[in-house]
Write a protein that binds this DNA or RNA. Sequence first.
DNA 1: CTTAGCTCATTACCTTTGCTAACAAAAATA
DNA 2: TATTTTTGTTAGCAAAGGTAATGAGCTAAG
Lengths: 149, 149
Amino acid sequence: MPEVVAQQVKSDVGLASALRSSTLRLSRQIRRQRVEGVDLTANQLGVLGALGKHDAMTIGELAAHEQVKPPSMTRIVSNMEEAGLVARRPHDTDKRQIVVELTESAHALLHANRRRRDEWLQTKLKKLTPEERDILRKAAAVLERLAAT
Amino acid sequence: MPEVVAQQVKSDVGLASALRSSTLRLSRQIRRQRVEGVDLTANQLGVLGALGKHDAMTIGELAAHEQVKPPSMTRIVSNMEEAGLVARRPHDTDKRQIVVELTESAHALLHANRRRRDEWLQTKLKKLTPEERDILRKAAAVLERLAAT
DNA sequence: CTTAGCTCATTACCTTTGCTAACAAAAATA
DNA sequence: TATTTTTGTTAGCAAAGGTAATGAGCTAAG
């Protein structure tokens, strides 16, 4: 480890900077790992992820979540529907709205993606020392709390 | 912290999963923080970041780095040149190649962006306990090493 | 209760952006 | 020196997002 980093990290401003840099770098690499043969656009991936968390969302909610205008989301969902990734369903009480849900194969894809990323990360973790892994074990919980607030 | 997480993190597979989730989540939030009034496409941001690290790159190098075909990079660079973000310059020895560099204002923009993200992260860090910050201090170095390999 | 206004998704059209193919200039190689 | 390869650009095409306009359904004022 370069001395410069060790020194910077002592101050809080240095901690923020070091954490920003290392987190962004690692996340870029994690993001790069995904199942082959399936090429989705960034927005399709975003929709998949959002539905993975929230189960069922309307077109408008998805558009807001993905920072995209409603007409664009209409087309994104249509494409994903043709690809068998999502299904449209009428809203229970409001007939204007359309509820979008993941299909079984989309759930499987999400799961496979996560699995692949985890496997990749595990092989990298094996190269660290037990002490380093221990530090990351504690840090994961803190990072989770940091991202949650 | 939920017990489930604490338990999972004990195993290495759980560590990878927890680290993936928390890192991706935090990085998404960091990425969201940027200077207002300047809206750049994802590729423009990528070029800016790449040039921020490597100082001077050819069109071909940039295309490879951003996972884009050379003709696309030609246009991206042309647009950024018009926007005053980059400058073209002939290669020293190979007259086929074009070297792209950041302008002063692009450097300033990159700096402002980093600064803004750091400030945002610092305010979040302040809400943690000193012990948690200490964990992150150690973890930053390990994450850096993890991303470097 | 009914009409006016609002919300949500969609359609039509335009612009942007990336890709492939074709090309010109320069370098490498035979 | 002649041929092949590499590098960037131009031209034309397809995909994807945005705005404006439309239609169906909800909501609230009269």
